[in-house]
């Protein structure tokens, strides 16, 4: 092949540019895998998007990936970067990492109460069931209730405000006079409350509740309380 005198220098310059540009084109995308399921854990491995890997464990929204030689944790939001997984597998993993609609609740109140409950979505509301127990020395009292929770305001993605109303049955134990009843007598109780909830993480919420309980007896005793509680989204 013959080049004329003017063409050859031009080709030389072009080749230099192409060679200089080639490293940038070959720059590889590396996906970091961590030693534990959190951004705070250090990176212990890096993989390329086309490396064939499989997810062997899930903890919350994190997946433990392995290529049979090394392994590390990757958040579900980063799964799309692994092209070898395929879109169907990515969708499956994304779906199973999402929290469900059931919440478990636990907390304690200013009235020496400890409570635990469960709630689940029902249309725009959440149905809840809650058991409250207070132990005061050698006696105590309890309350089992069920009702509805409704979110009436939100502040960004981090805070929400709820009200709830429920009906239940209260009982004094071992001579306690909390509900002003005779021994083993069950008292119908109505309760209303307002919650301020901080959505700490995808599956975890912490809230403050002001509640007011009314024993539906002749004495119409009422019991205000302030509670600290936490919700676990299953």
């Amino acid at each position: 092949m013959h080049f004329r005198g003017r063409t050859w220098p031009f080709l030389q310059i072009l080749m230099v540019f192409l060679l200089a540009a080639s490293p940038a084109q070959a720059e590889q995308d590396y996906i970091p895998l961590r030693s534990g399921p959190s951004e705070a854990f250090p990176v212990i491995a890096e993989i390329t998007p086309d490396l064939k890997v499989r997810a062997i464990k899930r903890r919350g929204s994190w997946f433990l990936l392995t290529d049979e030689r090394k392994q590390g944790w990757l958040h579900a939001d980063q799964l799309y970067r692994i092209t070898s997984l395929g879109s169907d597998q990515q969708s499956l993993l994304m779906n199973i990492s999402r929290p469900g609609k059931t919440r478990l609740e636990a907390g304690f109140s200013s009235e020496n109460e400890v409570f635990a409950g469960v709630s689940a979505f029902f249309r725009d509301y959440r149905l809840y069931g809650r058991y409250t127990h207070a132990s005061t020395g050698s006696s105590g009292w309890s309350l089992a209730e069920a009702g509805l929770i409704r979110t009436f305001a939100r502040m960004g993605d981090s805070f929400s405000f709820n009200w709830s109303a429920g009906l239940g049955a209260g009982q004094d134990e071992d001579g306690n006079r909390h509900w002003h009843t005779e021994k083993d007598t069950i008292v119908p109780v109505a309760s209303v409350s307002a919650d301020a909830v901080w959505h700490a993480e995808q599956r975890f919420e912490i809230g403050v509740r002001t509640s007011w309980q009314l024993a539906i007896t002749e004495e119409r005793q009422n019991y205000p309380a302030v509670s600290l509680f936490w919700n676990l989204r299953l």
Binding site: S38, W62, A200, E201, F204, L232
Partner: peptide, 10 residues
């Protein structure tokens, strides 16, 4: 202990 996310657990 039940994991609820990166940082929190019940």
């Amino acid at each position: 202990r039940y994991f609820t996310g990166d940082k929190w657990y019940a």
